[in-house]
Design a binder for these strands. Structure first.
Lengths: 138, 138
DNA sequence: GTGCTGTTGAGAACGATTGTCAATTTCGCC
DNA sequence: GGCGAAATTGACAATCGTTCTCAACAGCAC
């Protein structure tokens, strides 16, 4: 964790970084690999996994587990949380100073140190909610 | 999802429920299966998975993903969050009305409905922190 | 007890992720 | 610009947690 980063810049890593930035939703490593392949790239699956892990380690991407697979998303390097549509995957980055403080306070109150926290909100975005309402009515 | 619960009570399910209650940490399905086997039970791994999924669905257990596997823990049926020691696994249940409200408010502000949220704090409990400090000094 | 039906257990199947290793590419250095 | 060491890549195999399948079994109402 102490920045031992002898990272070499390669086409593949750049390609993964770009493909990730191109989406504003969380995507799986598998999906990203497929997308790259369809764009004519020849990257290997293992390389995509390695690149994503590197990006996540460098704080350039966020990772979250959902449904047995790990999803990645390019993100701002500052600490933040997510509001995610569970239907279309659209994601909003949230700042939550209040929650940060709460987490730190609660951890300290129980004698815990070095608190990290996972705070994500899943819901149905306005569009998906409307679409589902229409479907239900039909 | 609307409580179609024609659940039959069997020895195996009871055994899983008990084994889960016996621990106040999050445990993996695999670990629980091993523990049951060592107690002389003959439950199958698939049954443990099914029982745990059922308990989680009924709100009698909490599930969280960590390190590629799903961990379970018996819990109070009311909504709550967790403070978890990332070293020894000791867990404290938290109530967090403030966070609930924040989550609902933020979701609504972005037009999201039916918000669910994941809020967990990982840290090092006092004992583990002390132990690690001692190890580092050595 | 009898019968229907949900449940079980063993093992196979599955899917995501990680490891292996020879071939290739990057990058500091001359 | 060219060299060489070392990191990186890609194809494939291996691994690991979880789910599926299916015949045998057990709970519960009658």
């Amino acid at each position: 964790m102490t920045d031992t980063t002898p990272r070499r810049s390669t086409k593949q890593r750049e390609a993964v970084r770009e493909a990730l930035s191109a989406s504003d939703e969380f995507v799986s490593a598998q999906a990203l690999h497929q997308a790259l392949r369809q764009d004519g790239s020849t990257v290997g699956l293992a390389t995509v996994y390695r690149a994503l892990a590197a990006l996540a380690a460098d704080g350039e991407a966020d990772a979250l587990q959902a449904g047995g697979e790990v999803l990645y998303r390019a993100c701002t390097p500052t600490h933040h949380h997510h509001l995610i549509c569970r239907s279309c995957g659209r994601t909003v980055e949230l700042e939550a100073a209040a929650v940060e403080q709460w987490a730190g306070r609660v951890a300290a109150a129980h004698g815990f140190v070095e608190p990290e926290h996972v705070v994500d909100i899943f819901g149905l975005c306005a569009e998906c909610a409307a679409r589902r309402a229409a479907d239900d009515a039909r």
